[in-house]
Design a protein around this nucleic acid. Sequence first.
RNA 1: GCCUGUGUGGUGGAAUUGGUAGACGCGUUGGACUCAAAAUCCAAUGGUAGCAAUACCGUGUGGGUUCGAGUCCCACCACAGGCACCA
Length: 799
Amino acid sequence: MYNFSEIEKKWQKYWDDNQSFKVEMDENKKKFYMLVEFPYPSGVGLHVGHGRVYTASDVQARFKRANNYNVLFPMGWDAFGAPAEQYAIKNHIHPSEAVQENIKVFKGQMKSLGLAIDWSREFATTDPEYYKWTQWQFLQFYKAGLAYKDEKEINWCPNCKMGLSNEDAQGGVCERCGCQTTKKLKNQWVLRMSNYADKLLDGLADTEFLDKVKTAQVNWIGKSIGASVNFKLKDTDDYLEVFTTRADTLFGATFMVVSPEHPYLEKYKDKIENIDEVNKYQEEAKKKSEIERTDATKEKTGVKLEGLVAINPINNKEIPIYISDYVLVNYGTGAIMAVPAHDERDYAFAKKFGIDIIQVLEGGDITKEAYIGDGVHINSGFLDGLGKQEAIDKMIEYLEENNIGHSQVNYRLQDWIFSRQRFWGEPIPMIYCEDCGWVPVPDEDLPVVLPNVSSYEPTDTGESPLANIDEFVNCKCPKCGKDAKRETDTMPNWAGSSWYWLRYMSPKCDNAIADMDAMKYWGKVDLYDGGMEHATRHLLYARFWNIFLHEQGLVPNSEPFSKRISHGMILGPNGEKMSKSKGNVVNPNDMIENYGADALRTYEMFIGDYSKDAAWNENGLKGCKKFLDRVWRLQEVLNDNEGYTKELEVIINKTIKKVSEDIENLDYNTAVSALMILLNEIEKHDSITKMDYRTLITLLNPFAPHITEEINERCSLGDTLCTSSWPIYNPDKIMDDTYEMVVQVNGKVRGKIEVSTDSSEDEMKSLAREIDNVKTHIEGKQVVKEIVIPKKLVNIVVK
RNA sequence: GCCUGUGUGGUGGAAUUGGUAGACGCGUUGGACUCAAAAUCCAAUGGUAGCAAUACCGUGUGGGUUCGAGUCCCACCACAGGCACCA
């Protein structure tokens, strides 16, 4: 047998030495931009799941290259973030040192997989030459009025001592450490992402994302169309504003509820007679975790505001106001009009507090539960007798005419909290001056570099460790020259990954985020592969960022990615997610050592539907190794005949078609299967031609690039495969002369017969009746009709 | 609760989109080679009945459309992912 590690090293060196995969712009060639999410270089090295994703991307890149595309297939490192910082805290070294070490390991592993990456474009988000431009782009947001400082309650992880975005604290659990988050007031930099809600929705039309990715984004943005309604506060000149999607039920609004954080509670503290009780409720709400507060199944709680009463503007009835934590401060106006007859939550609250329930839609039995279905309006004055949409329209018209409210759109999407109180992130390039306020760091002073310090731990006050470093903090105001202080917060991990695909286009550019000509040439990412876990967060941030850059005239396209696909995970042999604690982790290094990178790659492509999870099975890997061994052994049976072996011509042409289409459609598993079928056919012959062999290994090359190059060289089959063109099939040669015609009687298969491909329908019919078993099934029965599907089957219907 | 998906042999998974269900691989069983083992090669392999030809059953469940349904329609069940007191 052959020495696969020797062969693999040989060809990896060859590709390196010859810079085989380096690309430059070439206006004469069609471009193809293959992007795969760049990894966070952790200390544990690559996972076999990475192997699947990178191999699949590599197959695409090699396939497109062979099809004469100018292929950009780059790689880099998303290297800011908590793990490197934790490691630094523990070992008292600069995080960049740990990052350098890890990158080395990752890159070595990627090379040993034989990936056709253009390494000349490599960078890390932690390179000052890169984050200089991340900082510069933040300043563009700032200058466009899209970055602002806001004192607001944020998610706070008491364990990590860190502010978290809503995205990082989903469900009230810290994404990093898993502990329960609380709330804390902090002055944060925030990006006005919510301004872009509609653009993010509309832009989806220009993408080819999977439906589930689009749906996830649409849900995340959460657009709802409704109305804003003002309720007058009795004995004041003020109004309490609410958002509702059901303005038509206003006649049934019998009370109002404000969230515990609503500003009116402070504003009207003198008017609220039971303010102590209210304050107590606010305190309790604050103490509760996000999980407790948003548990929809728990019993409703609340306190009635004594002394503060609202007036329903549609009927001028006085209605009470309550404070309750089932109303969220960060959605709508933080206050609602409650229609207990037709809303489950309001119903539960009204029942508990003994509030009036007025039915305004016909249907259901509201003595038992809220009726949330549709119905004709009743008890609703001028809306009586109307259906839902008609009533909504009429009500909004009325509200607008009478200056009580207006139509309004609301989004679930929030602004992006952009501050982190950590060391290992891009410093936010802002300076605070007593006289001038917040002043951007001038472009020529970028990047604001992370200093060397002895401790990387967050401070007890929750501020970044940078706040303890006087040399970093103290500076001069760029505007007036007086003593000033730097912002010590850093950017979130998502910042560096929100524009990295642009940088690959011209990674060395030093006067812009990337060269405009390069961005125009490479354009949008053609195929972007990443995990489903990034369908909302990373993908929305990246799109928001790019849309903004486009508006600023900094990039040529509004949408950054054409097609987004997502791969399934590789699970452990037991079908569970691989983890150290479960002891089911498969190390790709071991697999490469024992079976070779080619076998590993082939197996990871063959393992199953690329978009679905798949459980690891080492026997499957052995099977793929066996397949490659058999391909290798064909070297012994080469003959000197020209062209294809005649009997193999059809299946070879068919296989070219099948493999090409499958790779194009990301059906890697069936592409490998087609090659196995071809090999099975080939092995039925005593000898094969060089052309037979060359075509087989060319089709196999994207999956097993090393062994195929070696075979190609040893047998002198042609040019190196990495610079060769993909085979083209002959459409006239993909049809066999004969096929197995299926004969059914009443839809059941009763016989099969080998017939010539150019048999006429009549010939097919008569051949069908000659089959003995068919005869027995139609004997003595009346033939009602005969269905003929050319080149496939005959179905005889009898009675 | 809502939104996406998915459900096929012992197993990973195929099925030209309404036309032979189970390709290909793994596993299992039998055989060849070998003193023996490994490796390799050959054969069989959805279930039931049968010596066999063949018949019946079979793609989560129950209905339906059709000459014909894994594929389309209706209802339901289970699992996975996302969202969720969003007014």
